[in-house]
Structures are given as structure tokens and as C-alpha cells.
Design a protein around this nucleic acid. Structure first.
Lengths: 331, 331
DNA sequence: TTGATTTGTTTATTGGTTGAATTATTTGCC
DNA sequence: GGCAAATAATTCAACCAATAAACAAATCAA
């Protein structure tokens, strides 16, 4: 597939095995005649990713190894709104430190950390706004690194819906292009195009909750009227489910018309309600998507549950190692 | 910038000069002391791109050289709706052949052709639907190649708004991410992300004309209700301009919320009306874009006029040569 | 046991890049 | 006018990763 010769591949694989990224499997899988091949697999003892998440009512951290297996998982339920950013991130840092130490006791090396937050994140990792946490301009990486056990780690920060979309990308059966919609208190979306998360120029993509569905409709806390969030957010969801489905369908039809996205994944609070929402969404999609006669849009519930964002965060770290293993070996 | 040594760069440049892609300039530009450098510029005598366009009321073809200069330009005004696809594409083929021959008489080598159509294009270049031409499943590349003078050319086909966006990308002062909105009989959009046109999985992105702005509004010929096209299409534009601006603003706010696009370019019929439309669009954008308090969305009229799609088409050909010059040299 | 088949390694060769030295061409200063 | 400094470009031996082809290893089937 790569066009490289067996000799070259062997040399490269030797480096990866020596660097602990790949292990040789014994006994190897077989086919027909001939000398049996040596099996190779991603190492479960090499570099690992530390995924962290802060949300309105919980803190979470996990360590995922190169194979994608969750090796450590810590969750702490507590309302974060009264704490303020500093106290919350200090608690999360301690939780993450526990996860890291437990993982390293198992022989893993944590290569880096990523943090999922329900808000807008600037390019340098600072959180511009997190409305539901009441945060503004929080330098999250610095506050996390204040915990001594994390001081040496590279830490990235991203929106929770974006990272949940990445988590879904990993477990999904290989749809390289889809929209992940996360129904929480607000509604966020993560857009994966050709296998890569599209973050937008300033990292502020995916704010589907504030797409207008009824221009003169209900007032939204953002100041506008008729935002999707007012019709399909967690509060509205408890009331009129058919309205929630129709409004979701209208907003999603806009996405499909604009981006020709063939798959939509419903996560967060939408996942358990998928059966009830599906028909209403589909109806609006088939009515309003210009190409609905040419090809269907696939609707499906998220495969990962509440851990999606945290797992996606950890995944960004190990994906970086997998995308450029030589950089890891040179470290 | 590349990290290559001068020796290596010299060797590579030698190949490009020998292949006619680059010419040495004489006299070169100067700075201070020292041996003066040899100036290098893209050759205006090398490979060129043939850009073609078919639209409701005209046919057009042009040849653009490596430097981006339009070297030949032919336009034929005539209503194409009564002709049918075969006759239209034969006429366009003859026009393109004239452009090609004239360009080759000037020493250019036409490397390929690209065709802009107002419709949905499949991956193989066939036009699935072009509503305003009343086309369905037209194998446009084959019909163009039926003209003997074009038989040897690789021909690609794309949506006109997509190609106009690419044309705009070339002349714009380097915004790598923007949405180009083309107001014609219908409304199309071309989405350029990080300097690359995003076509969607099936090539059907950019159908902003069928984004819903008023869910229970005017019926559209697509079967839905309240599509943008009914409020900001060429017919609606002649009537209520403030309504057109507001509805455009609502749809564009959705794009910005979803994609964090920092620049919106208004083309086609919108370009001459830019002054009248601007305030109405901006008002809705600042009201409905969640991040409008954090960073502005830039609105500007298209720099290229009616030639945008044709120029963008030609540009795709020369861009392919520039992106992989070695492939051209190996030919 | 033999031959076919497949996997993996060895080794000389190749081609592109590098680095250092060299040559070329200008400006600025005494 | 002559010389030093600065900058540009080329030459050439050395290096390195990948290649191709031969060879060794390990299995199955007859």
C-alpha cells in the first residue's frame, strides 16, 4: 500500500519496535502456505494520552493507551459553577495527576494531556467564554500545569463537542466525514471533514445551538431570537419533543445543504432519545435538503456515552504520536 | 523556508527552468552589497489552463497562463435553455477550441480544461442536475471532448460557485478561509477552507440557496418552504431589498456559527448591490453570530466580475501544475 | 522427502541531499 | 583605483535512506 519495499518496511518497523510503539505478537495469525508472518500490534505499554474534561456537574480524567484502550478513568461528580475556574481546575489537575500516576505505575508513559471544556477556546488554549460555567478568559493550561505532577506535560484545550466528535471518529466504523451534535444544556457540534476535525479559523466552529430556526421566535440568552438551543436544548427537550425534532431537522438541513455531510451523529442527551427524535428530524431533512432525492443522509446515535469528550481528548494526544512517531522516538 | 540547502534549491530550479515552468529574470531586483541574485518568475510561455463556463445566457472560454494572466477570452451570449445539453456543449467546445488554438499560436501549451456549470456535479464530472438549464445526467466531459481539438485534454467539471470561489481565492489578498456567495437566478456558495475549496463528500456543498430562513415561508421550487432563494434570489432581489439583506444575514449567520468563517465575499448579482445590502446583512450577523462580540465578520464584494467562475476553472488547471510540477515535467 | 509458497534479511547500488570549499559579482571605503 | 566585505551560485565528495535482487527461513501440500 505504501509502495515501500519489504526491506524498508522491516527497517522502519524495527525502529518502532525498539521505540516501544509496536510489539511483535506471538503466535502470529496465519493464512496458507509459506513462512508465517510475525504479527505486529500497537504497543499497550508505550506512550499514552491523558484526557481531561470539565463540565457543569462533573470533572473527569482518563488515560488511553496507543491501542485506544482506556487504562485509567476517574470521575468526580460535583457542581462546578460555585467553584470558579481556579478551584475547579486545581481539583481537575489533582484528579488528572492521580490518573497519570496510576497509569505510569502500569508502565505507561503519558505523552501529553488534552482538556475538554464547554466553551469557546482561543488558539493558545485559553478559554474565552464558557457560559454555563460562567468562565471568561481562563488560562486553563497554566492552571492545570500548576499541579506539580502535570508541570512537564504539553496540555491542549478544545471545545467538548469538538473532542467528542473526535472520540466518535475513533470508534465509528470509519465515516471520515460527519457532524456530531451534542445536546447538553447548550447544543454544540463537532464537524469532522475527511477524517479531520474542522475547528474553524479561530477555533469557534460548531455553534449550531445558535443557528436561527425561527427568526422571530423565542428570545435566547445570547441576545438573538429563534436559536436552535431554545427549541432543542435540554430544557426544551423536556417539553415538546416533536418541536425539538423539527427544529433540529431544520438546522441540520442547513448543514447538509451547505456542506454535503452524509452522516449525522446525535450525542449527549440526544443519544438516549434517538428513537423518538429520528422520524421528526428525517422528515425535515428529506423536505429541506436539496439533494435528498439523490442520496440519503444517515442519522445515527453516538456510540460513546458521556465519556466521548474525555476519550476524544485523550485520543488527540495518541493520534499526534501515531501521526508522527519519529518525533516521539526523537524526544 | 523549505529547509533545503542552496545547492538543492539550485538543482530543483534548474529542472523547472529546463521544463519551461520558470524563467530567469534579467535584470534581477537588488538590495545591498554582494553578487546580485538571479530573479525567477513563473513562466508566461509554459503550461496554461483552459477555463470554460456554460450558464443560462452565455458560453465562455478563456486561457490563463502560469502567472495567472488571462491570455485568451471568448464569450458568446445566447440563451442556452432551448438548445439542450448536446448542442450547448458542442458550441462551447468550438469556442474553447478557438481559445486553445489562439493560445497555442502564442506559444502556450494547454495542460487541461475545467468547466463551470450551474448545477450539481458527480465525482466523474457528469452533471446530475442543472435546474436552470433543465439538464439531467449530462456527461459533460465526453460531450466537450467530442470536439476534435479538445479530444486529448483532461477535462474536469465543477459547480460555478465553487469555481468562482477559487477564482476569488487567487485574486483576493490572501484570505485562506472564506465563503463566496453567488447571487444568480439561484444562490450558490463556494466554501474555501484553509486555502482549499471544500466540495463536500459528493461534491454537493454550497447549496446555501436552500437553507431555510423562514420555516413556514414562501414555497420554493425545490418543494420546501422558506428557502433563502425565495427571499434573496435574483427575482426577490428586484422587489424587497431589505428583506433580501435580512434573509441573507440569517443564512450567513448560520454559516459563521457553524464554521467560524471570518470573511464573506458577495458575488454575482450581489456585488453591484453590495452598498445597499451591507448594513442589513451586518445587522443580522452581529445579532445572530454567537462570537460577534469577540471578532468581526468581514463582508466584501467580489473582486472578479462575471468571469469569476471561468477564471477559477482555468485556475484549477494551472494550480494542479503548480502543486505538482514534477508530474508535468514527467509527462 | 521434495517442491512450492510466503516471510524476512543481507548486501551492493542508486539517487537525492548535504556541507564545505570554491568561484562569481557586486558595494563600500580608504 | 584597489581592497575588503558581502552576497550569490556552483562544484564535489560524503552521506543516508530506499531499492532490487539474491538468499535464508519457515511453513504447507503432494
Amino acid at each position: 500500500m505504501t509502495g515501500l519495499t519489504r526491506a524498508t518496511v522491516s527497517a522502519l518497523v524495527d525502529d518502532l519496535v525498539a521505540g516501544g510503539l509496536i510489539t511483535e505478537m506471538d503466535p502470529p495469525p496465519r493464512t496458507g502456505a509459506g513462512r508465517p508472518a510475525v504479527g505486529l500490534a500497537l504497543s499497550s505499554a508505550g506512550p499514552a494520552g491523558l484526557g481531561c474534561e470539565i463540565n457543569v456537574d462533573y470533572l473527569a480524567a482518563c488515560v488511553v493507551d496507543l491501542t485506544g484502550t482506556v487504562r485509567q478513568r476517574f470521575v468526580e461528580h460535583a457542581d462546578q459553577r460555585p467553584s470558579g475556574a481556579e478551584r475547579s481546575l486545581e481539583s481537575l489537575g489533582r484528579l488528572a495527576a492521580r490518573a497519570r500516576l496510576a497509569a505510569e505505575a502500569e508502565g505507561l508513559t503519558v505523552a501529553g494531556a488534552a482538556l475538554a471544556v464547554p466553551g469557546l477556546v482561543a488558539g493558545n488554549g485559553s478559554v474565552r467564554v464558557a457560559p454555563n460555567l460562567d468562565w471568561q478568559d481562563v488560562d486553563a493550561p497554566a492552571l492545570l500545569r500548576a499541579v506539580p505532577e502535570l508541570a512537564d506535560l504539553p496540555i491542549s484545550v478544545d471545545n467538548e463537542a469538538n473532542l467528542a466528535a473526535l472520540g466518535e471518529l475513533r470508534v465509528s466504523g470509519g465515516d471520515p466525514t460527519f457532524l456530531y451534535v451534542s445536546g447538553e444544556v447548550g447544543i454544540g457540534a463537532g464537524l469532522v471533514l475527511d477524517g479531520r476535525l474542522y475547528r474553524g479559523v479561530r477555533g469557534w466552529s460548531g455553534e449550531i445551538g445558535h443557528v436561527t430556526v425561527y427568526p422571530d421566535g423565542r428570545p435566547c440568552r445570547c441576545g438573538a431570537r429563534g436559536c436552535l438551543e431554545q427549541y432543542a436544548g435540554q430544557e426544551a427537550l423536556a417539553g415538546d419533543l416533536p418541536l425539538a425534532a423539527a427544529s433540529l431537522g431544520i438546522a441540520l438541513a442547513a448543514v447538509v445543504n451547505l456542506l454535503d455531510v452524509p452522516v449525522i451523529v446525535l450525542g449527549g442527551a440526544y443519544a438516549p432519545l434517538f428513537a423518538e427524535l429520528r422520524a421528526g428530524i428525517s422528515e425535515e431533512l428529506s423536505r429541506r435538503v436539496l439533494t435528498s432525492g439523490l442520496a440519503d443522509v444517515v442519522l445515527r446515535p453516538a456510540a460513546l456515552g458521556a465519556d466521548a469528550a474525555m476519550r476524544g481528548a485523550a485520543d488527540t494526544v495518541i493520534r499526534a504520536v501515531r501521526d508522527d512517531p519519529a518525533a516521539w522516538l526523537r524526544r
